[in-house]
Amino acid sequence: MGNFSMYVEMIRIRFLMMLAYRTNYYSGILIYSINIGAYYFLWQAIYGTQESIQGMSVSQMTTYVAIAWMARAFYFNNIDREISQEIQDGKVAVEMIRPYHYLGVKTMQGLGEGLFRLLFFSVPGMIIIWLAFPIDFSNQWSVWALFFLSIIFSFIVNTQLNLITGILTFFLMYNTGLIRAKRVVIDLFSGLLLPISFYPLWAQDVMGYLPFQAISYIPSMIFTGGFVGSEIYSAIGIQIFWSVLLIIPIQALWMLAKRQLIVQGG
């Protein structure tokens, strides 16, 4: 890594770029608010008069939905599409003349994007939602701390999956389909739309072997108090496990990809 101030600079530049395209950002706020509102009313209807479903109360559920979307603003990024684009127009090859690791730079750009949305989007959004809906915020600072630790790993795992999808463009050349499919799979299996504990048992077993729950389910469960005590630590352990394991396919694919490097035109 070595060049810390360079990566800080990358993050700063991504901040500037996000500011340059503010309109995307406003429409993002709208989409997120609509989603949270819709899920709120949906869950209200599903719960009806029941006190709790699968051990979650209705206010826990509301909090789950809100926090899951707010966390998504942080871990979500478009670097898969960017990498794919840069591979297709040959920009990746030209990046080889820079003394840095391309994937590292992309990750930092993703982080810049995430931090931007966390500060200018999630935080104000959370305040509005807190005023509009009955949401339980934990008053234990340790829950907050663990939640923030956990969304850092959400970011790492999600970004790693994005890197893999992006690099696959080298071998597929046109992979918009794959990128879209990946997005749907993550929204479904990460626990963003539905907590994992609501899935049928066999599906829960399958998801236990997949990295997606590390993205949304774990931090949201920590925040809503769905996980307590040692459950929290083993959940973060799962996130760490995936963060480390996913390095292997990324490195392998990148080595193969570099051999395929072809620059179009010029």
Binding site: N3, S5, M6, E9, M10, I13, R98, P99, Y100
Partner: peptide, 8 residues
């Protein structure tokens, strides 16, 4: 500015 950092 970024390149200045990149090349130290």
């Amino acid at each position: 500015r970024l390149l200045k950092k990149v090349y130290k």
